[in-house]
Computed example of a mutant assay.
Amino acid sequence: MNPGTVAGVVGLGSVVAWATVTVTFLVARRRGRYDTIDTAWGVGFALIAVCSLMLVRAGFAGAVPSGGPGWLATILTVVWGGRLALHLHLRNRGKPEDPRYREMAAKARRFPAGRMYFRVYLTQALVMWFVALPVQFAQFGGAGQHPASGVAVWVGICVWLLGFVFETVGDEQLRRFRSRPENVGEVLRTGLWRYTRHPNYFGDACVWWGLYAIACHQPAGAATLLSPVLMTWLLANGTGKPLLERDIARRRPDYAAYVRRTSGFLPLPPKRE
């Protein structure tokens, strides 16, 4: 694989990520809501996948397309990103801005807009670009593919499908639960939420491990291991679960008991009191 080809395609991904968050930031400023980035998160991954596929298919700097795995990784990324963007848009529509963003903006007393752009938006652009690397590497083909590369692709499909089902079903179960007035202030303890406090985050991590497995159809793709590792760490220990749960116990008194019984990330049978 030509290093110049890889650098060009990966560089395109960084430009697409930067352009996505910058345009989103301008829209957010106009709307007066910094949580607009939530909707753009999935869209950014889809745009990176599509743009890099077009560049590889065009033979940029002698790039050799991978064929099936490249198309597959791109389509799965677009499906995941499109669903997530639509879900978050509908979830946030007509509601107050996410308090996490309001809190971050309030702490930035001087030049809050600039601080939000550099600390939140550009940080998300960097993460978006890095996590999307397996998708871009999956689009390359050429010599050096192992005879068992097809197995990696099938494993990737199965893991991606597991994650997509967990994320989609978990989000829908939570949406229905919150739509009922009698559940205001209550904690969802049924369905997938009985086995993990964050089935959507667990599913998200599986999606990216699945895409990484597809990228492993050729040796260079295996080098993007840190991409799904970073996404999993962010969901389980970074800006995902810990940030979301930081003040939820104060808003929902029964949540502490739910935490004691229910796994924080991996789906496991609930513990007995």
Rank of each mutant, 00 (worst) to 15 (best):
T224L: 02
L72C: 07
V64W: 06
T74G: 08
P181V: 08
A63V: 12
A46R: 05
A256K: 12
V78H: 09
V229F: 09
Y201W: 13
A213S: 13
E273W: 08
H146V: 12
R261W: 00
G163T: 01
V159F: 01
V15C: 13
A205Q: 12
P96K: 09
Y258R: 05
W41R: 07
D247L: 06
L53R: 14
A106W: 01
G144W: 11
R252N: 02
E97S: 03
T168M: 11
K271T: 01
P96C: 04
G70T: 03
P269H: 01
R272T: 10
R261L: 00
P147N: 10
V169T: 05
M104H: 06
R178T: 08
A143S: 14
Y101R: 10
T190E: 14
C216S: 02
P65F: 08
E186F: 04
I37H: 07
S263R: 06
Y255N: 09
G240E: 08
G170W: 03
L243N: 05
D204A: 12
W233G: 06
P96F: 06
E97M: 08
V184R: 15
A223E: 03
G221H: 05
L162S: 06
R102M: 09
G221R: 03
F166H: 06
R272S: 13
R100F: 05
F111D: 15
F137V: 05
Y255G: 04
R251K: 13
F60T: 15
I214G: 01
H87L: 03
S263G: 12
R109Q: 14
A213H: 07
T123W: 14
V43Q: 00
F166G: 00
R180S: 12
P134W: 02
R110Y: 08
W129H: 14
K107F: 07
R178M: 11
Y212P: 04
T22L: 15
S227Q: 01
V259A: 11
A19M: 11
A125R: 10
P219R: 01
G240Q: 04
D204E: 15
N92M: 11
